[in-house]
């Protein structure tokens, strides 16, 4: 048997569950319910309310990516550090939350952040007043960061781990202080990991769904929630067509970010996790 045949089950799977649905999305996006070609589904998105949802989604995704980078980079640097024992078990700790379903993790966050939740009860016990988390943009942002942080840590960790440490020793021997070593040697060498991490956090964050509705009590909805609403609850007779055109626009957004990644990291050194 030829080696190329080994991928047949996967290819069939993808054909059935990725290619065929995509064809449906394309078909619905450019047709009316009667099956006639149209571009009017896209015109629907000139309405201001959609712009507001997209801007909110982009804004939160950008904040989320930035926060993940700020938290994730030092974590990855720490994990890749030379003198560290048991690195493997620490990496597992980072991965551990991902073994649980995303919705369960989000419900856990709700329990923590609720007005009478764990955090607020503790604050109240210490007579420190109450902080309103649930229902705010901050809560949604926390939920996003919590869920997607591992996607930032892992690619950066992979790149830093593979780094040739003698280069850093050389920089130190040549008199560079730690700050200079970081800014002139480590950071430039870890760009592929950063790019990979940024893309892998930004993509799911911008299309995320359910997290925002749950943590905002339904007050802040993102692009994913909008698509869900259009397909499942809207009474517009064109809902499948409008929903498909919106899904297609999100898909193009993701393709653009992949293109961006290929440009900055052509050899896909950033861990190649996807």
């Amino acid at each position: 048997m030829k080696r190329s045949w080994y991928a047949t089950p996967y290819a069939l799977w993808m054909l059935l569950f990725a290619v065929v649905p995509l064809v449906f999305v394309l078909w619905y996006a450019f047709t009316t319910p009667d099956g006639a070609f149209t571009l009017s589904n896209f015109a629907e998105f000139s309405k201001p309310r959609y712009a507001a949802v997209i801007i909110r989604s982009l804004k939160l995704a950008v904040y989320c990516t930035a926060l993940c980078l700020l938290i994730g980079y030092p974590t990855a640097w720490f994990l890749a550090g030379r003198g560290l024992n048991r690195t493997q078990s620490l990496v597992v700790l980072i991965l551990l939350p991902m073994w649980m379903n995303l919705l369960l993790r989000t419900y856990a966050m709700m329990t923590l952040l609720d007005d009478n939740g764990v955090i607020n009860s503790a604050l109240a016990a210490l007579h420190l007043g109450q902080i309103k988390f649930i229902g705010t943009e901050g809560a949604v942002l926390m939920g996003l960061v919590y869920n997607y942080l591992p996607f930032m840590v892992l690619p950066i960790y992979t790149v830093l781990k593979k780094m040739d440490w003698s280069v850093i020793e050389a920089a130190e021997d040549l008199g560079a202080n730690p700050l200079r070593v970081m800014s002139r040697v480590v950071l430039p060498m870890s760009v592929p990991g950063i790019v990979s991490g940024v893309t892998m956090v930004f993509m799911p964050a911008v299309t995320s769904f359910a997290i925002s509705t749950l943590l905002s009590n339904g007050k802040l909805r993102l692009a994913g929630d909008l698509i869900d609403y259009i397909f499942n609850q809207s009474s517009n007779p064109n809902r499948w067509n409008i929903g498909s055109s919106f899904s297609l626009m999100m898909l193009v957004l993701i393709l653009i970010s992949i293109g961006f990644l290929r440009k900055v990291d052509p050899d896909n050194q950033g861990g190649g996790l996807w």
């Binding site: 309310r49 909805r221 517009n236």
Partner: peptide
């Protein structure tokens, strides 16, 4: 009211989204 549901939908989405 399904024949005028699009009117409800239009107003409702402005509140929800």
């Amino acid at each position: 009211i399904s024949d005028v549901a699009y009117l409800y939908d239009d107003v409702w989405m402005d509140i929800l989204m």
